[in-house]
Design a protein around this nucleic acid. Structure first.
Lengths: 240, 240
DNA sequence: CGGACACTTCGGCCCCCGCCGAAGCGTCCG
DNA sequence: CGGACGCTTCGGCGGGGGCCGAAGTGTCCG
């Protein structure tokens, strides 16, 4: 009907193609599961999503081809993880947009227990979240290390704090040094970006926190309580 | 196959439903067009997207029902615009993720001319973009009004600057005071959020800038050059 | 070497959804 | 009042894509 089939907008086509990757419930479940920052096998994801292995294999093919996932093959396993921090942020942003109603709703006692551990402290892709993440972010703001009421950025004092604590910040690359990640249990933003990732890595490496089981939940150790109290003035009570 | 049809993750379902709204090329073209912040009629969007009016009517129904668009009916016209700044940011973020290759490619002389005017200065939803937006952001950063290398936030001096310039900042609401919007012609972030919107509104109201034609492009007036030079030290040459 | 295992490919099924034109409805204007 | 106009609803068509089980490939382990 239209004469010249006016070449359609390539930006619209690209946007649609990208969104289509997340527009399927099974693939969306994979993306959300992978938000924990770990690498999952195809089989784990298939069981998690409740579909046949063959079905999930095709989904992974699309997600990898679309650049959302990176894959690593080890023996007979296919491990996938979110391709990079940009993708993680995109999934977070989309998830944060989705109806806040769908957020909290523990179903079984066991889930409720796990949920409360998750609410205390957990990782979100590569940074700290839950009440632990909030407490750290609050402490940074209270000590003038972080601006968060007029945007979200480390102050000069904040940059010096990281140097003094011996936590290196990789300032090459396009990833922002600090950005806000909107939590979906707590309803408040917490520190993400290069600084959030560096802090989380340091906390796990030095034993301030340990992972609980194979889950995303983390627990603050006694050494961690002392360190967080000394370096940031965080009261241990705020973490319970 | 599966016994209890294990109730699927409502968060995944919500994410998939949201993404599906943008996963169609015609709807994606609408969302991108509406990024200019104006209200479009259904007919304008149908011509823009190159589909029948009946087709586009159905698309608008879904976008409105999904909360991405707000509509306003006037007589026999149906005006739609992006529902709010959150949606605008989401579309921006998705568009920024899409292959940078699909960015620049002027096709006709007329488009090239319009493109260069757009590159000089334009609005992006409700804030300034293009080289004008970059110049303003650079000036804010150079004068210590804005932190952007360690995140993105107004400094105290920045907040005072807005007060001194008589530009009100509405600090109620959840919208961040300052945030980065990634430009897709220039490849650098520029000031968005409450402060970016207030600055843009003020610039248009006081005649620092005027819109060119019915497009998103804006031009800096002579009065605007004097004001930007006096208040921010922006050299007029940077805007050409 | 043979069986268990993780994943992939293939064929087939079916549903969803985007598309259109035709017809209908409300609004505007001469 | 009547015709032009903008939008919506409806029926029907066609393509795309998610799903599965079965069969195939490659890996690990006893």
């Amino acid at each position: 009907m239209l004469e010249g089939m006016t070449t359609r907008d390539p930006r619209a086509a690209g946007l649609a193609r990208l969104a289509a990757l997340a527009a399927d419930e099974t693939r969306a479940a994979c993306l959300l599961a992978l938000l924990d920052g770990r690498a999952w096998t195809a089989g784990e994801l298939a069981r998690h999503a409740g579909v046949a292995a063959s079905t999930l294999s095709e989904h992974l093919g699309k997600l990898v081809a679309g650049g959302l996932l990176a894959e690593e093959r080890q023996g007979r396993h296919r491990y996938v993880r979110l391709a990079d921090a940009r993708v993680a942020q995109l999934v977070e942003d989309l998830a944060a947009q989705v109806s806040p109603a769908a957020a909290e709703r523990p179903r079984t006692l066991r889930q409720a227990g796990a949920g409360s551990a998750m609410a205390r402290g957990r990782t979100c892709y590569d940074h700290l979240a839950g009440r632990l993440g909030i407490a750290v972010t609050d402490a940074f703001a209270a000590r003038g290390l972080l601006l968060r009421d007029t945007g979200f950025a480390l102050t000069d004092a904040g940059v010096r704090w990281f140097a003094a604590a011996g936590i290196g910040l990789d300032r090459r690359g396009r990833r922002p040094l600090a950005r806000a990640c909107l939590d979906w249990t707590e309803r408040r933003p917490h520190l993400a970006g290069v600084a959030g990732a560096a802090l989380c890595r340091h906390a796990l490496e030095t034993g301030w926190c340990v992972r609980i089981g194979s889950e995303r939940a983390v627990k603050v150790t006694e050494a961690g309580e002392r360190a967080l109290s000394g370096l940031l003035g965080i009261d241990a009570g705020a973490l319970r």
